[in-house]
Simulated assay, not measured.
Amino acid sequence: MTISPLRRLLLLRHAKAARPPGTADHERPLSGRGRRDARAAGRLLAKEDWLPDLVLCSTARRTRETWELAAAELAGLPQVRFEPRLYHPPVPQLLAVVHEVPAHVSTLLVIGHNPSLRDTILMAAGDGVGQRVREVEEKFPTAAVALLAWRGTWDGLDARTALLTGLAVARGARPGPS
């Protein structure tokens, strides 16, 4: 009897973005807090040993900046692909991107936006450890990371097929007084 491989899908919502006047949504940069939280997200991924084999990142500026700052906190850098289909997709489109992931990838990190990430977590999580599903229902804030796990293939991720095993929000320390 062959046991299906364990798959881990990490979903990271971009860190807090600024809203400069006249800037298109796709080009919004991270705020100061966002830059601190993005670095903290990288430290969180390293501390929890949530290290991806592959990163799929929305093409929006705030997601790219989140990855760049988080990656600087990691010991090794996985392959990264900037994916235009991850810019505010409906859940079926986000799942279609995940379903294309090569079989050799065990842990995938998707960096994207709400409500897409929140809705994907709630759709895919058949259950969660503790109150995690309820916490996501209430709020999936900026710089939050969720970990879904299941045995099977990437294209097997569907409604209620995964377990929400990890949930954390990365917050960087505020700068002290000058």
Rank of each mutant, 00 (worst) to 15 (best):
R62S: 04
G32I: 12
A24D: 15
P52R: 02
P78V: 01
A38S: 05
V98F: 06
A71E: 12
P92T: 09
G34M: 07
P21Y: 12
A40W: 10
A17F: 04
L44D: 04
R62M: 01
V110S: 05
L56F: 07
A72L: 15
R36G: 05
R28I: 11
L95Y: 06
E100F: 00
H14P: 01
C57H: 06
P84H: 07
Y87R: 06
E27A: 14
Q93T: 15
L86D: 09
A75Y: 08
A17Q: 06
C57E: 05
E48V: 00
G32K: 09
V55T: 05
P21A: 13
T66C: 00
E73K: 06
H14A: 03
S58T: 12
A15I: 04
R62P: 03
H104D: 14
V91E: 00
W50I: 04
A46T: 10
E73I: 00
E68M: 14
E65Q: 15
P90T: 11
E83G: 09
A103G: 08
R61D: 01
D37F: 02
V101N: 10
K47G: 14
L54Y: 02
V105M: 00
P21S: 15
A38C: 02
H14E: 06
V97S: 08
R64F: 07
G34K: 05
L86S: 07
V97D: 06
P92E: 15
I111C: 13
R35C: 06
V91W: 00
R61P: 01
V91K: 02
V105F: 00
P89C: 12
A70E: 11
V105G: 00
D37R: 09
A15T: 10
S31W: 08
C57A: 12
D25N: 09
P21W: 09
R43L: 10
A24S: 15
A60P: 01
R61E: 07
S58F: 08
R85W: 10
P90G: 11
R61H: 04
L86I: 10
A18M: 05
T66K: 00
R62F: 03
A75C: 12
A46V: 07
R28Q: 09
A46F: 08
V55M: 02
W50D: 02
A75R: 14
T66R: 03
A38P: 01
A46H: 13
P84G: 07
V97H: 04
A71S: 15
S31E: 07
V55L: 01
Q79C: 11
P89I: 07
P84C: 05
L109Q: 01
R35E: 14
